[in-house]
Design a protein around this nucleic acid. Structure first.
Length: 959
RNA sequence: GGGCCGGUAGCUCAGUUGGUUAGAGCGCACCCCUGAUAAGGGUGAGGUCGGAGGUUCAAAUCCUCCUCGGCCCA
């Protein structure tokens, strides 16, 4: 046999063979795969495949149709897609209809910007044309985002997404509004709302952002006390402090705190020029020092003439500093007790203008003081206003900086009236600004439409909308659980829902108000005429048709006012359950949804608007459970912003790494908290991806090219593993099937918990630890060197087949593209058949119940000890590989039922025998020229062992 | 400024009702293999569990304060 020592046995070894490349090239490959899904009509195929199955409805919250997809969209949609795909894999019918929010200010703003660029005045544009432009603008971004989401591998009904601007949707939104009107939950009120004088519109809370200012004005103003139960106070001056001088012309009262302590300070000791012509001032004791400081008065120079608590001030009246103007200013202003008064800043006395503050409005309303609507939409005082209104050339918008400055008209007039005690422009605080124009906003009282939150309603079983919503929250499942508290506390504390906007691009508040009585017209026939018209002609119907057409012949159009406000876009999106889930247009959907899934900011947004809309009209939430995710930060955990330049663009990541990498990232991080993304993290995700990819590559390489395992039958895209007789398998094979079953269980649990991090981790650790480092490593010799018909080798391949079919399905919801690539590599006919890995269902595994896994866990622990014991010999270069080691293990450490030969195979060593303690020596055996094992049956290095001798003989014979 | 949430190895994450030397995967270092090869295997080094107090026989786990970060609100 000496000639054999020179023979190269490489071609007698069964090495893995596959066309599946190690390097993924995802950015190049993915678009083609997505395209094929489109071509085969994946969504319809899935609906067909899951006909009559239990449904799982994830309702998409509509992103705003404005701009490219950003990382937040990517995370959100990958999570949604993972939910839909895992539920589908479990065999449920999980349709997904993506949607977009299309109305609203940001789009209007963009369209106006385009007009400005064309030097065209918006006021010259006919409203219908303007709305048409907005519609076109939104449609453009819907298409852009749609393509970007498809590129991300998101599956859904892309041929018919829902848009809030579809006429059918607009009509249904109006119908929902009418439901509120018909049940008496809608009212027109006057309330101070956040108002932007620049955009001339009321703003929602979400449209306002706070910026820190360092140069705000602050002034102290003296109001002379006319009458008071406290005799000493008469003739003295109450001092108020404010950062908004422009509200002084609309002052109607002062507020004090009942429990706050006040002092009357005597200024007579001061030199005359420091006294402002005033003898006494009234301020809170706690703020005395701060106030005197602003007034430039040394506290040692003043005496306290009177001291008392706020409640003593009841019944005190002051006069406005501009009393000499008469009219509005001639009325005495009362001092009122306000719960909101604190001694944190100011003077402890707060000037009240019901037009321009929430606290002010409420307190004044209690005392019968009404707002006067002095400030117009553009921020200037109205034409007939006696101070700084009309033709006063100094008239400006109230947010105009010079207007409020210490040398501006307000301060100058107050100074002249002897009422201005201090004025500067150096105050630091945060102040609300419009998120679009970045200009300052103000509180301004305007007529607005509201949905009442606390009125008990018959159709809600005598409960209020708030109570109904609180009950619905109690009935909802929250993932993670902390969301419940967050939503509940917001609903508990929120005010009535302000739903009107004075803008152009939106669903109209299509209502009639009787001019004489001011009452809302509630007539179902009229309402249905309105909705029907909108459903035919879009929202233009309301603006372009005459009142008479809606009112019908029985009513005189002259008697009714058509409301021209439009709806808050939150009302639009809050109605999606009505015009999407309940709509005939998407028969695959139903309501309520099993799940809404959005970022945690939507506790105040969509989760809440949907809840209120549905509770107000249907008495329950439109969802059974709510899943919220945190926000994506940069690599250091800091918020991403364009100005900081630390944004990560998912489109770029897809180009560089591929969509499967972003998906793997999104499903690995803890979405319940804020999480990070960055180069290092993506690199780590890429490593994890490669581990999974190589596991599939190994399986594809080891498994027969033609499907011999299936006895020649072509299983194709509906294929599953070949039937196997579990009882006849070697124990290692049965153990691995048991481990696979354990993995299966972990994965099912992770799906039930929406815990995708646990899902991916279980999958990766299984691939890495159980397969690569254990099972595949042990069976490498068997796969390469045993004869093709060897029962052990066949058993191994059978188990690899099971593993393949299970793992490719498990991976499919995560690595949507790679799983498809894996599947079509093994079953190329899938492509012609129009099949896909994504049409398959959760694997059914061979039953291996009753396995004694404890024995194997002990075995693996021992295996680790053996590896550790071998290491010193390798370090000292006594041996190089474990195959050269003869190992002794303590009898007591070996689980029952393993013989020495099995142990040597499992430990991948030359031999194993029992002894007192773990010991390792170098073997004297020779190395088999084919399998490279060092065995007693090998006569000399390079010769064959018994097993290889047989196999080579067989092969030579066949050749 | 207020409410809520969070800060465990370089990275992503586990750490059940407080209880033995705080774990995993990846990365890293070193080694082996060169017949999964820009792959595979082995060993190892990394953490004062954001910081400071406190409760307790015992705290990453409970309490207080501080700090950093985030969301929402003002």
């Amino acid at each position: 046999m000496t000639e054999n020592t020179k023979r190269d046995y490489k071609d007698t070894v069964f090495l893995p063979k596959t066309d599946f490349p190690m390097k993924a090239g995802l950015p190049q490959k993915e678009p083609g795969i997505a395209e094929r899904w489109d071509e085969i009509g994946m969504y319809e195929r899935l609906r067909e495949a899951r006909t009559a199955r239990e449904k799982f409805i994830l309702h998409d919250g509509p992103p705003y149709a404005n701009g490219d997809m950003h990382i937040g969209h990517a995370l959100n949609h990958v999570l949604k897609d993972a939910v839909v795909r895992t539920q589908t894999l479990l065999g449920k019918d999980a349709p997904y209809v993506p949607g977009w929010d299309c109305h609203g200010l940001p789009i209007e703003w963009k369209v106006e910007e385009q007009y400005r660029k064309k030097k065209r005045d918006k006021k010259d544009v006919p409203p219908a044309e303007f709305r048409a432009e907005c519609r076109q603008y939104a449609a453009h971004w819907v298409e852009v985002q749609k393509e970007q989401l498809k590129r991300l591998g998101i599956g859904g009904r892309w041929d018919k997404p829902y848009l809030t601007m579809r006429p059918e949707a607009e009509a249904q939104i109006v119908r929902e509004l009418h439901k509120f009107a018909e049940t008496g939950q809608l009212y027109r009120g006057a309330k101070p709302v956040m108002w932007s004088p620049v955009e001339e519109t009321a703003l929602a809370d979400a449209e306002v952002e706070y910026h820190d200012l360092t140069d705000s004005p602050q002034i102290d103003v003296a109001f002379e006390i006319m009458e008071s139960p406290i005799a000493e106070l008469v003739g003295a001056h109450a001092v108020i402090w404010t950062t908004t001088p422009w509200t002084i012309p609309v002052n109607q009262a002062l507020a004090y705190g009942r429990d706050v302590e006040y002092e009357l300070l005597h200024l007579n000791r001061l030199p005359k020029e420091k006294r402002f012509g005033i003898s006494h001032i009234l301020v809170a004791s706690d703020l005395k020092a701060a106030t005197l400081g602003r007034l430039g008065i040394d506290a040692r120079d003043v005496l306290t003439d009177w001291q008392g608590s706020g409640s003593d001030l009841a019944g005190t009246m002051v006069r406005h500093p501009m009393q000499h103007l008469g009219g509005f200013y001639a009325t005495p202003r009362p001092l009122l007790a306000g719960d909101f008064v604190t001694t944190d800043s100011g003077t402890g006395l707060v000037h009240m203008s019901p037009d321009h503050g929430e606290d002010d409005f409420e307190l004044c309303r209690k005392h019968g003081i009404d707002p006067v609507f002095a400030v117009m939409a553009d921020g200037r005082y109205r034409d007939d206003w006696p101070w700084l209104g009309g033709d006063d050339e100094r008239r400006r918008s109230v947010i105009n900086k010079p207007f409020n400055a210490p040398d501006g008209p307000i301060c100058s007039d107050l100074r002249e009236a002897g009422a201005l005690l201090s004025a500067s422009a150096d105050y630091r605080h945060s102040y609300p600004h419009s998120w679009r124009s970045k200009a300052k906003v103000v509180y301004r009282c305007t007529p607005q439409w509201f949905i009442a939150i606390d009125e008990p309603k018959e159709h809600l079983d005598g409960k209020s909308l708030r109570e109904t919503a609180m009950q619905a929250i109690a009935d909802t499942r929250f993932i993670p659980a902390k969301g419940r508290n967050r939503l509940a506390s917001m609903v508990e504390g929120r005010p009535d829902w302000l739903i009107s906007r004075q803008r152009a691009w939106g669903v109209p508040i299509a209502l009639f108000v009787h001019r004489e009585t001011g009452k809302l017209l509630v007539d179902r026939e009229v309402n249905e005429r309105i909705a029907a018209a909108i459903s035919r002609e879009t929202v233009d119907a309301w603006h372009e048709n005459s009142a008479a057409e809606f009112l019908g012949p029985d009513r005189n159009p002259e008697e009714f006012e058509m409301v021209t406000d439009i709806l808050d876009v939150w009302f639009d999106s809050g109605s999606t359950h009505a015009f999407v889930l309940e709509s005939e247009e998407w028969p695959e959907l139903s309501s309520p949804a099993d799940l809404y899934l959005e970022g945690s900011d939507q506790h105040r947004g969509w989760f809440q608007s949907s809840l209120l809309e549905s509770c107000g009209t249907r008495g329950h939430a439109p969802y059974k459970s709510l899943l919220t995710h945190g926000f994506t930060m940069d690599a250091k955990g800091m918020k991403m912003s364009k100005s900081l330049g630390n944004t990560v663009n998912p489109l770029t990541v897809m180009e560089q790494y591929g969509a499967d990498i972003i998906r793997l990232w999104a499903l690995t991080v803890d979405y319940t908290e804020d999480h990070r993304i960055g180069e290092e993290i993506l690199k780590g995700v890429g490593d994890q991806y490669r581990k999974l990819r190589n596991t599939f590559r190994y399986l594809l390489g080891a498994l027969p090219e033609r499907d011999e395992l299936h006895n020649g039958t072509e299983k194709g895209s509906s294929g599953t593993y070949a039937p196997i007789a579990v009882g006849e398998l070697p124990e290692l094979e049965r153990y691995m099937l048991g481990e696979l079953a354990a993995l299966d269980e972990r994965l099912r649990q992770a799906v039930a918990d929406y815990d995708f991090g646990a899902y991916v981790r279980a999958l990766t650790e299984f691939a890495s630890e159980d397969l690569s480092a254990f099972y595949f490593d042990i069976r490498k010799d068997c796969l390469y060197c045993d004869g093709p018909a060897d029962p052990k080798r066949e058993a191994y391949l059978a188990v690899l087949d099971v593993l393949f079919h299970a793992l490719v399905r498990y991976a499919a919801p995560v690595l949507v593209f790679t799983a498809e690539e894996v599947w079509t590599t093994r079953y190329p006919q899938t492509v012609d058949e129009g099949g896909s890995v994504h049409l398959l269902e959760w694997p059914v595994l061979p039953d291996v119940s009753g396995m004694d896994t404890a024995r194997w866990e002990a075995l693996r622990a021992l295996r680790e000890d053996v590896m550790e014991a071998i290491e010193p010999l390798r370090r000292e270069k006594i041996i190089r590989s474990g195959l050269e080691a003869e190992v002794t293990v303590p009898e007591s450490a070996v689980p029952a039922g393993f013989d020495d030969a099995e142990l040597a195979e499992l430990f991948i060593t030359a031999s194993v025998e029992r002894g007192q303690e773990i010991a390792v020596t170098k073997t004297d055996n020779h190395k088999c020229g084919r399998c490279w094992r060092l065995l007693p049956s090998v006569p000399e290095d390079g010769a064959l062992c018994d097993r290889c001798e047989d196999v080579v003989a067989q092969l030579d014979e066949a050749a």
